[in-house]
Design a protein around this nucleic acid. Structure first.
Ligand SMILES: [Zn+2]
Ligand SMILES: [Zn+2]
Ligand SMILES: [Zn+2]
Ligand SMILES: [Zn+2]
Lengths: 141, 141
DNA sequence: TGGTATTTTGATAATGGTTATCATTACCAA
DNA sequence: TTGGTAATGATAACCATTATCAAAATACCA
């Protein structure tokens, strides 16, 4: 099932309505292959449909997160950024503190160790965030 | 060198002044063995010295972070919490999404793997954050 | 021990991302 | 269609944090 269908089903399953705005915001978001802010998404959507409100973009992003189709990040002390999750598998982030460049990675052994640690402490882990902050190749002295 | 002396030295080293407020805020903060908000710290300090301003608490927390004596966290979407770092070694966090309980852990193998991954991607890591979100023993169904 | 340049402070206004409000509009099952 | 409910857009409100600025405190030197 594709991203759009998945979102539509999520809405239908809990009696929420499928609207023009939600479809457009969702589709625009899914097409962005990056970590996007609500404002940026709003501007992109506005090009297509100038009457869409910023509040609806925020509301839809929240829905997409609940549906497991988006993930929210707050790197450092910056404001929220969102990324599509439908196709990409889980991954973590390396953030350059100088130029802001974000690189993604995934390491099965780290994932496994996390689960083991949590289990040993009696926790049942649902999600996690691993963020490495430093200097990318270009920004190193 | 103790925490207080360490902070005093940090200030002296860069021509900053050692004030009654900074000493009190720093000492009160160091005595808290928990993850504290600026507001909470402000209230504790105010009991001792009612004339200290909230802005100064924020400013001093920022200094303590720069000095490597405190660490700032934003678990989930909540506001900033700070923890003393002087004595405790580096550690990561398990957060219960239901009751808010925070447990600390440290795992050398994960730390090592992080460095290896970063190195393989050309990054030089300065700090990192690993947060595991889930349900603690008490909150599991 | 003053004197003085500089930093720090406290009160408060401003900021800015996000959320709440509410009248109007859109959706959809019957 | 229609009626009941949910969603929307504009904007006000929120609230943690930061900026501002006049007054006070500090460090250093004569
Ligand atoms: Zn960089
Ligand atoms: Zn990502
Ligand atoms: Zn719990
Ligand atoms: Zn901790």
């Amino acid at each position: 099932m594709g991203n759009t269908a998945c979102f539509t089903k999520y809405l239908a399953d809990r009696g929420l309505k499928s609207t023009r705005q939600r479809e457009l915001i969702s589709a625009t978001f899914m097409a962005i292959n990056d970590h996007t802010s609500a404002e940026e998404l709003y501007l992109r959507v506005a090009k297509e449909e100038p009457d869409v409100g910023l509040a609806t973009v925020y509301r839809t992003l929240k829905l997409l997160c609940s549906a497991g189709l988006a993930r929210e990040h707050r790197f450092g002390n910056s404001s929220s950024r969102y990324e599509p999750l439908s196709i990409k598998q889980h991954h973590d982030h390396l953030i350059c503190t100088k130029c802001g460049y974000v690189e993604e990675f995934e390491h099965p052994k780290i994932e496994k160790l996390q689960d083991e640690i949590a289990a040993s402490l009696g926790f049942e882990v649902m999600t996690h965030k691993l963020e490495l902050y430093g200097l990318c190749r270009k920004c190193q002295p």
